[in-house]
Amino acid sequence: MSAALPTRSEAKAAARRLRAGLVERGIRIGHAEALERVARAHGFRDWNAFHSAIDDRPPATWTRGGRVSGTYLAQPFTARVVDAEALRPGWVRMVLDLDAPVDVVSFDGFSNLRRRIRGLVGPGGYSRERTSAGIAHLRIEFGAPD
C-alpha cells in the first residue's frame, strides 16, 4: 500500500482522469471499474477496502502547520492551520491564522477585520453554520493553496 493515501475526493477524481485517459486511447470502462483500478494501484484488493481506509479522512493540509485556502463569510482567504482536532470521522475543528485579514461585516459604513478564525468543518470542507443566504460560514478547499 502507498504511504500517502489520497482523500476520497482525490481518489474519485483520479478515477475520472483514468477513464478520460482510457477513452482517448479508445478504451471504455465504467466508473466502478475505474474506482477498482485506482484502489488496486494503491495496493487494495477492491474499492470497498480502499474506501474504508480513506473514508472521511481530512486532507494532510488540514493538520497543524498545514496551508489551506477557502472562503470565510463568502470572502476568499489563505491561511496556516494553527490547530486542528478531529472530533468524529470527517469532522475537524480548526483554528486558522489568515495571511490577510477578512472583513466579516458586509455593511459599507462599518468593518471588522479578522486575522484568526475558528470553525468546525465536515467531510465536504463546509461548516454547518450558514449565512441568511444559505452559504456556509467556512469552506476549506481540498488541496494546497496556490
Rank of each mutant, 00 (worst) to 15 (best):
T71H: 00
V104P: 02
L120I: 12
M94W: 06
A144S: 07
P101M: 04
R25F: 08
R67H: 02
A13Q: 08
G43F: 04
S9Q: 15
E129F: 05
D97S: 13
R116I: 09
L87V: 12
H42R: 05
D83N: 05
R64A: 14
A4K: 13
R130N: 08
G30S: 11
R115N: 14
W62I: 00
H42F: 14
L87E: 13
R45E: 08
R114F: 02
S127V: 12
A49N: 07
W62H: 03
G124N: 15
A144N: 11
A32C: 04
G143Y: 01
F107W: 15
Q75N: 03
A4G: 04
R8Q: 15
R130L: 15
R40T: 01
L18M: 09
F107N: 14
A4T: 11
A3V: 13
E33P: 08
N48E: 11
V95I: 13
L98E: 00
H51S: 05
H51I: 00
D146C: 03
L138D: 07
G109E: 15
R93Y: 10
R40S: 03
V104F: 04
A4L: 15
D108M: 10
A60I: 05
P6C: 07
S9W: 06
A41H: 10
P59W: 02
R37V: 01
I140T: 05
I29N: 07
N112W: 08
E85S: 04
A60N: 00
R28V: 12
G26A: 10
G122K: 14
A53E: 12
P6T: 07
L113R: 04
F44L: 01
L98P: 04
A49G: 09
I135C: 08
A4S: 12
V81H: 00
D46P: 03
R115D: 12
R25N: 10
D56L: 12
M1G: 06
A32W: 08
L22G: 06
G125P: 12
L5D: 02
I140Q: 04
T131A: 13
L73T: 01
S69T: 03
V95Q: 11
I27F: 07
D146Y: 05
R116N: 06
R25D: 11
R40Y: 03
F77W: 00
I135W: 13
